[in-house]
Design a binder for these strands. Sequence first.
DNA 1: GTCCATTAATAGGAAGTCCTACTATTTTGG
DNA 2: CCAAAATAGTAGGACTTCCTATTAATGGAC
Lengths: 185, 185
Amino acid sequence: MDVNVSLLYPDSMTAEPRAGATRLTFDPIDAARAQWVENGWAGAADGMAAITSLMRAHQIVLARVEATLRPLGVTFARYEVLMLLWFSSRGSLPMKVIAARLQVHPTSVTNAVDRLEDAGLVTRSTHPDDRRAVIVALTRSGRELAERATAALNADVFERPDLPDDDLRDLFDVLSRLRRSAGDF
Amino acid sequence: MDVNVSLLYPDSMTAEPRAGATRLTFDPIDAARAQWVENGWAGAADGMAAITSLMRAHQIVLARVEATLRPLGVTFARYEVLMLLWFSSRGSLPMKVIAARLQVHPTSVTNAVDRLEDAGLVTRSTHPDDRRAVIVALTRSGRELAERATAALNADVFERPDLPDDDLRDLFDVLSRLRRSAGDF
DNA sequence: GTCCATTAATAGGAAGTCCTACTATTTTGG
DNA sequence: CCAAAATAGTAGGACTTCCTATTAATGGAC
């Protein structure tokens, strides 16, 4: 999952990342920040640290989300498509709209819909007014899975993000400003 | 690139995501949050909104980083390996250490090092004391590229993250707490 | 009213992530 | 001391993302 990573991680040569055997007593990204300053890049240090943190946090959160969805047989990318359809009034949307709303490349939607279709969770049909367009519709089984997956995600991830409520709100607000200045909305 | 995405994006059927032709006047993630509340998932709404924002912000930032690195012929994943070696005193590290510091799967390191080696930016050699281990070392050309890439990233991304300094610091702090409670350090 | 430009979707390919399985060493335990 | 367990790295596969190019259909310009 477009998961990328951080910069300059654990400092101890024996760190066991996933097992967590060795607990670090400092923040490795903070250490990287210090190295940035030492090398005369002080003006970029805060930006580097923030962006590196973003990369790493994304990796952590995405891993939790995928772990929750795995038993249900979907990935996050496909779950997003299901939820988009679930929220639409008719339970169906053109490919193009899915790509626009998820902000991904059209080919990524083709890929996801291929797999959802193979799994019987959605169907494809030609748009009646524009024969170039393809309408993707949720099947009954797709609707059920969307609901079960949402229940699982809410319970295991969204309701317990391991962050105080204030932080949650702050995170959303700060990222909201970042997205806005990137022209995201 | 490894970019994942947000949930329930633009609302206008004709939104042109990347071209930015149609500017939205509201935050689509905020709209998704409202739908979460409407469906009785109020307890998960803030978590969903924060995590979805994180996914989307990651996608935006990673795209900027990759765009900056592309002219230099490296990806962010490979750049991270180069910088790790650059910061090490000898300019070389075992594969295992690289994986631990970048918090990625060993096979991801194999993949990245394969490509760096093909490009003449690093070399592989057997560890003298442990013939299972492989030492990756920066070449002169790898060192030069690491420096040019860092200069480019600092100038084009890290020094101008399109966020006020306070936000930058807040973002780092909040994500720091998130990472800590996830057992990241 | 036809011809051309635009648009919707897909095909194929590169690159990243992870996982499981496998090989080759090193270390440990009886 | 030698067999069994642990470790380092790689191979192959699944999945996602993006890119470029192609096909089919729509719509605008003259």
